[in-house]
Amino acid sequence: MTIRVLVADDQEMVRMGFAMILDAAPDIDVVAQAADGVQAIEAVRAHHPDVALLDIRMPRLDGLEVCARISADTRVVIVTTFNDDDYVDTALANGASGFLLKDSGPDLLLAAVRAAVAGDALISPELTTGLLRRTRETGARRAPAEITEAVGALTPRELDVTRLVAAGATNAEIGTQLFLSLGTVKTHVANIQRRLAARNRVEIAARAWQSGLMD
C-alpha cells in the first residue's frame, strides 16, 4: 500500500526537502503541499491523505488547530523547530500521532509517517523523557481506577512488554530483550492496546506511567 502524505509548512525549502525525502521512499507518495493552515485543511479535503505533516507556526491557522480539525480522519505528525512541552501536550491532546523536531533526520521522519499509518505514535527521543516525566507527576492525581485495574489485569508477559514500550523501546528492541520474535511482540502490543483501550504506543506508555507500573 502506498502511503499518501500532505506536507504543510510555511517555508518552501522545508516543504521541498521533506517532499524529496518522502517521495524517495518506495511506499510513500506526497500528494499535496500547503503553505499555511487554511491551505492544509483544503488540501486534506481535496486529496484525503493518509498522513499530514504539519508545522506548528503557520500563517492563518497554526498546525495545532489544524491537527484538532483533521485528526479524526487523517493521521497527523507535527514537525517543528520548537522543543516546547506545551506544544507536545497540546498536539497529543488534539489527536496527533507523532511529534518530531525538524532536525530529527530523514530516517525518523519516514519512521513517523509509517508509524502513524500503523496506528503507532513516534515522538522525537529528545521529547519523550519530558513527556513521560510529566505523565508520572500527574498520574497519581489523574489516573482513573479503570486504568489502574486494566494495567493490573495484564499478563506477566504483557506487563514486561508494556514496561519496555513505556521506556521507549522499539518492537525490535523489545524482541531482543525478551527473546521474542517480532511478530510475537506486535501481537502483544496489539493485545495491550486493546486491553488498555489505547490508540497507540504513546497512550500505552501514558497508562503505564499513570498506573504506577513504572515507579
Rank of each mutant, 00 (worst) to 15 (best):
M1C: 06
T2R: 12
R4F: 02
D9C: 05
Q11F: 13
V14A: 12
R15W: 09
M16N: 12
F18T: 09
L22V: 12
L22H: 12
A25V: 06
I28G: 11
A32Q: 05
Q33G: 07
A34D: 12
D36K: 06
Q39A: 15
Q39T: 00
Q39D: 14
A40Q: 05
V44H: 04
V44T: 11
V44L: 05
R45T: 07
A46L: 11
H48Q: 14
D50Y: 04
D50W: 04
I56H: 08
I56E: 07
M58C: 03
L61Y: 02
D62S: 07
V66K: 04
V66S: 05
C67T: 15
C67D: 04
A68M: 06
D73V: 10
T74I: 07
V77R: 08
T80A: 10
T81I: 11
D85P: 15
D86P: 01
D89P: 00
A96V: 10
A96R: 08
G98D: 07
F99R: 08
L101N: 11
G105V: 06
D107W: 00
L109V: 10
L109G: 01
L110I: 14
A112I: 07
V113I: 02
V113Q: 03
R114P: 11
R114K: 15
A115M: 02
A115G: 10
A118E: 13
D120V: 00
L122G: 04
L122S: 03
S124A: 15
P125S: 12
P125T: 10
P125D: 13
T128V: 14
T128W: 15
L132C: 08
A140T: 13
A143Y: 07
P144I: 03
P144F: 05
E146T: 12
V151G: 09
V151D: 09
V151M: 08
G152M: 05
G152A: 13
A153Y: 00
A153F: 01
L154T: 04
L154A: 02
P156V: 00
P156H: 01
P156K: 01
L159C: 02
R163A: 08
V165P: 02
V165Y: 00
A166Y: 09
G168Y: 01
G168K: 03
T170C: 01
E173T: 02
E173D: 05
T176W: 00
Q177D: 09
S181L: 01
G183P: 05
G183L: 07
T184E: 13
T184C: 03
K186E: 13
A190I: 00
I192M: 07
R195G: 03
R195E: 13
A197K: 14
R201F: 02
R201W: 02
E203C: 06
E203M: 10
E203A: 10
A206Y: 03
A208R: 10
W209V: 04
W209F: 15
W209H: 15
L213A: 11
L213F: 01
